[in-house]
């Protein structure tokens, strides 16, 4: 059980998808103009990541290695479509909030990379925790970026007026997204350098 918690934690901070693996940067920049958008996309990603990881972990012996990529894409698309059809029946109000974000997920690099690197090799339980950890790490990253951008760009948090003025309009434009992600990434690298004494290397961006 201890190793599973470690797997979960690994995805949240030490291997955070946005700040450490530098995966799925497009949605991280495009969507995070406020906290609510980040939160909704994050929740949708957690759900799809966990479902896809579990599916791949269960059927990993049946998926021929040569066709694993199309099979993974199909599994992700399947889960996205199922959510898109089932959620409005369960709760239309929630669906209206997350509808747009759910449809964006099919092409996210983070999900397919976790299927390829982890779920295709490990059994169900560790895959579940890895998927959940990566999803929550993505959610955390989106909310953090969203909070900084919303506060500095529109002077609000979750739509509530905090500052009463807009300090830096550039922050809610795409440029601001790059700035914020860059600064947070630098902070992560700095902390790692202080803790381990090694200069960190980053992953490839998508």
């Amino acid at each position: 059980m201890h190793s599973n918690i470690k797997l979960f934690w690994n995805g949240v901070i030490p291997e955070n998808p946005i700040f450490r693996l530098a995966l799925s940067m497009c949605p991280a920049v495009a969507v995070t103009t406020n906290v609510k958008n980040g939160l909704m996309l994050g929740l949708a990603v957690v759900f799809v990541q966990v479902c896809s990881s579990c599916t791949v972990a269960i059927f990993r012996s049946l998926i021929h290695p040569r066709i694993r990529i199309p099979a993974y894409v199909l599994i992700i698309a399947l889960w996205v479509s199922v959510i898109d059809m089932v959620l409005p029946v369960i709760d239309i109000e929630i669906y209206k909030d997350v509808e747009l974000f759910v449809k964006l997920i099919v092409v996210f690099a983070i999900i397919i990379s976790r299927l390829e690197l982890f779920a295709s090799k490990e059994p169900l339980l560790p895959s579940f925790f890895d998927g959940a950890g990566m999803g929550v790490g993505f959610l955390f990253g989106l909310c953090l970026i969203g909070a900084i951008r919303e506060l500095s760009g529109s002077g609000t948090i979750l739509g509530h007026e905090l500052l009463g003025f807009r300090p830096l309009l550039i922050m809610i434009l795409p440029t601001g997204g790059f700035f914020v992600i860059g600064f947070i990434m630098a902070a992560f690298n700095y902390i790692e350098y202080k803790l381990t004494g090694k200069i960190p290397t980053s992953g490839g961006a998508h």
Partner: peptide
């Protein structure tokens, strides 16, 4: 082997989607 495997994946995905679609069509 590859062809059969991929076909099976696709058919099962299509069956699941079809079932979900028909089940949720009326309420949606």
């Amino acid at each position: 082997k590859i062809t059969v495997s991929l076909t099976c994946v696709c058919i099962s995905a299509a069956l699941i989607l079809g079932a979900v679609y028909t089940q949720t069509f009326e309420p949606r």
